[in-house]
């Protein structure tokens, strides 16, 4: 049986559970938000047979074939924060030592939440990465933007709509406004490739919008990425300590792949619909223990 640990309010969790139902794969829900709010638990490190969650369901995590975990904190009060911290300290340490398959385990790269270092790692790992500048110096930023089309992105891992930036936008920023990350815009289609273990499932989007996710008319289709790139992505996903990752690319006119980022906790449900559930199926295979 697969464990799904997250929140029922998370559409990605609901999407994965729905796929399990369609495939008649048994699963147990570990609703971390509900558990932290009103439930009970007992977890040992190292794990032992008495470990249990008492939430909407009683779940013994050591008896699961695998766990898909997406911890998203939704509490507000100090009391809720304390219970969440207690739950996650225990569950994280448990996942660090259990032999149960976990997607993704705690000891993985955190670079995605610090983009300049992330870009450096991607580039050093053999991927083509668009030039970028992170700075608080308005003149340097304006100079970068004047030299060619550019987009602005968060430096941290917060999801945001990518948008083009002009030198006049930089000039108009209030002082002090904090650091800004600008990156050379690559024109072309977008490709999102999900790596699950050794599987690569990719889809391609054609859109005139800077951020294709905001374009409902974007043309979309499942595609195969070049074999050498697929092999590299599988290796780099594992090198980061990940089983599951979402890789974003732009593909230019020449057909070259430009890596934008690797997401260690991909919200993949949107892409899975384009790929007829292939990402969920790969996750089910990894977590169901049928590959070992």
């Amino acid at each position: 049986m697969i464990g799904i640990a997250g929140s029922r309010a998370d559409p990605v969790m609901v999407h994965f559970a729905t796929r399990c139902v369609m495939r008649e794969v048994p699963f147990a829900v570990i609703d971390l938000v509900d558990l932290a709010a009103t439930g009970g638990w007992s977890l040992s490190v190292p794990p032992d047979g008495s470990d249990v969650f008492h939430g909407g369901e009683v779940v013994r995590p050591g008896e699961l074939s695998g766990i898909y975990v997406r911890p998203i904190y939704l509490g507000r009060s100090p009391a809720e924060a304390a219970r969440w911290q207690g739950l996650m300290d225990g569950f994280t340490a448990w996942m660090d030592e259990t032999e149960v398959a976990v997607v993704n385990r705690p000891r993985h790269h955190q670079l995605n939440s610090s983009k300049p270092a992330h870009y450096a790692w991607l580039s050093a790992s053999g991927l083509r990465v668009p030039p970028s500048l992170m700075s608080s110096d308005r003149e340097r930023l304006a100079e970068f933007v004047r030299a060619g089309r550019a987009v602005v992105k968060p430096v941290c891992g917060t999801r945001a709509t990518t948008r083009e930036i002009a030198a006049t936008d930089v000039d108009a920023l209030p002082e002090p406004a904090g650091p800004l990350l600008v990156q050379r815009l690559v024109e072309g289609d977008d490709v999102r490739a999900h790596v699950v273990g050794e599987d690569v499932v990719a889809c391609r989007f054609s859109s005139t919008a800077i951020d294709y996710r905001s374009d409902r008319q974007a043309r979309r289709q499942r595609v195969d990425v070049p074999d050498a790139l697929a092999d590299l992505l599988v290796d780099l996903t594992a090198e980061q300590g990940l089983t599951f990752a979402g890789w974003d690319f732009k593909v230019d006119e020449a057909g070259d792949y430009w890596c934008l980022e690797c997401n260690p906790m991909p919200g993949y449900s949107f892409y899975d619909r384009v790929c007829d559930g292939a990402v969920s199926d790969a996750l089910v295979d990894v977590l169901g223990g049928w590959l070992s």
């Binding site: 939440s113 610090s114 983009k115 300049p116 270092a117 450096a120 992170m134 968060p154 430096v155 941290c156 891992g157 917060t158 904090g178 650091p179 990350l181």
Partner: peptide, 17 residues
Amino acid sequence: RFLHSEVVAASRSIAML
């Protein structure tokens, strides 16, 4: 909070690189 996260991410990159 967003600005705080941006600063944390930026300073960590500086120290790493």
